[in-house]
Design a binder for these strands. Sequence first.
DNA 1: ATTTATTACGCAACCGATTGCATTAAATTT
DNA 2: AAATTTAATGCAATCGGTTGCGTAATAAAT
Lengths: 349, 349
Amino acid sequence: MSAVSAALFTMGKKITIYDLAEQLHVSPATVSRSLNNHPSISTETKTKVVRAAQEAGYKVNKFAANLSKQKSNTIGVIVPKLNSAFMSTILAGVEKIANEAGYNLIISQSLESMEKEKMNAHALFQSGVDALIVSLAYDTSTYDHFSNFTKVGIPVLFVDRVYPMENCSTIVIDNQQAGHDATEHLIQQGCKNLLHVSGHLNRSIYAERLQGFKNAMAKHHMEFTDANLLESDLDPNSVGELINHLQQINGAIDGIFVSNDRFAASCIKELQKLHYKIPEDIKVIGFNNDSICELMTPTLSTIDYPGYQMGVLAAQGVIGHLNGNIDLLPANSISLRHRLVVRESSSND
Amino acid sequence: MSAVSAALFTMGKKITIYDLAEQLHVSPATVSRSLNNHPSISTETKTKVVRAAQEAGYKVNKFAANLSKQKSNTIGVIVPKLNSAFMSTILAGVEKIANEAGYNLIISQSLESMEKEKMNAHALFQSGVDALIVSLAYDTSTYDHFSNFTKVGIPVLFVDRVYPMENCSTIVIDNQQAGHDATEHLIQQGCKNLLHVSGHLNRSIYAERLQGFKNAMAKHHMEFTDANLLESDLDPNSVGELINHLQQINGAIDGIFVSNDRFAASCIKELQKLHYKIPEDIKVIGFNNDSICELMTPTLSTIDYPGYQMGVLAAQGVIGHLNGNIDLLPANSISLRHRLVVRESSSND
DNA sequence: ATTTATTACGCAACCGATTGCATTAAATTT
DNA sequence: AAATTTAATGCAATCGGTTGCGTAATAAAT
């Protein structure tokens, strides 16, 4: 390292391509092209420039680069809640890929509110993200706040909590089949009187799981009535609703399919307090394969749900599209495989 | 909305201050100042400009604004893992405040590796973040990658997994006191033979908790030996080490203080498999007050740990500093209150 | 040796907003 | 009425890269 550049470096002075250009007696254009490995620059000058840049501790000014390229190298993400096991798993997958590809992530949470989701979407739009990955809030019912993006060609990709918008791909699992599998499992374990504890049915994932539940019942000649369904916000504080429901219908429920492991865990805990034996009296199956499943007593049967994979795919999808590589986004919907995981809470022995 | 601006709007054409300037027969400077509510612009023109901007669907180009202001309105965050209950809780707090204050968050995870942490730090530096919030990786042992920031005056704030760097504030709890409290609780419950399962001791939080553990033992005239300590990576797969340790020391451990609820849960589960009764044979206390504590059987005693608050404070700290409001950053260290939570896993009855 | 391709690089406009320094017009003071 | 403030706005440079187009120099073709 030369004395001069060492001095500049330690001084923390931000050096620009103009500085390099001057130092090397070439034009800023040449410096820029060299740094970006442009074909029309000789290998000789290229290496010269690159080395000088290194020595001088040169960093591109992203603002300037973004401005002229009209591209931010940033992906926006909106999730309902950051502090949810499942969502943070998706995020971990997204981050892994984005980071490897040199993309930044701007992450925001809607806190399950459409209003905040809108605000986040606008903020991200302003920030000039190159793509948007979204998992919808509970109560989102209009979707205009995403059309800003699609209108100007910014890809929007929905993950898990999806909505079928024009030109937007979705990454999901086959929730209906999964719901069916969970339900059929309970039936096969001998349950005669089923209950499905669902999330808000305006979110398609829950509606589809319910449909799977109904299908499985029908398949096994069981009649579905209101008594078989409890729609919940799946918040731990709402466990009381389950107990109320059980008392109201006054039927001996012997199998419960809960659309979420966390809430299933809370339910089991509460049922145990009321001296129900799980699985002897009531068999329970959850959804997600949260790490909590194996830590509970009894361990919780569930549907394994590839959150990390979904995140990975989402990131690969948008980045592949942006970079013009394998472009998954023309695909309307990508559905990942789920898996029934049988544990103690639904087993007979 | 005029026909012209409506047309522009639907066309998705990006309109600039120059467009507005032309349309209104004023200079771009006036438009810019009006939009930024600069005092030297008459109220009349201000409202005129603002309204026109609204109608035209004008959005500032952040790249350009960032470039000229040399400020990104973005805060960088590096956490060890996104998909950790505790970290995502911190993040939720950070996001809440940042979002309210109009700041974006660029989040990245080090995956407990110093190398990735370095790369993330550099990437964030490149991205021109205005501030950096960090929770350190397990194996981080050098800290130069943060001095780039401090050198050019970008505030760096450590949360939870901290390191005392020149000019960097930290947000923590009193880990030593907390470790002491947890330990003393076990002693008061009658435990005579303690074990502390710690995380890597090169992370100060774990070293401090261990110190608290030692202090409590000393206070109660118990001698600390190697048998009383198991250093672990706290990964669920490492539960075997605990069992090995118990067999090796061949002493009837009757109280375990685990430095992390998740791992405590795994330990309890494993101990139960080996027919230990918790709490009768062995009392256990964890750390964090993870939501899992209340879902386990037995419910897990722990130290309540204000993760969300830490996130909130971290964000408020850097933003307050950046905006020149209440500036917490001169404070070397901010310590939040912890709380002993006694549940079944450590109770006598 | 002359013409035609290639290669390597520089010029200068551009991306869109910000801001110090005039400048003009209106208001106030002397 | 002349001089001085004050208020409101415009000029033009600046932030740091990027990139279309032109050009000089060298190589290849005729």
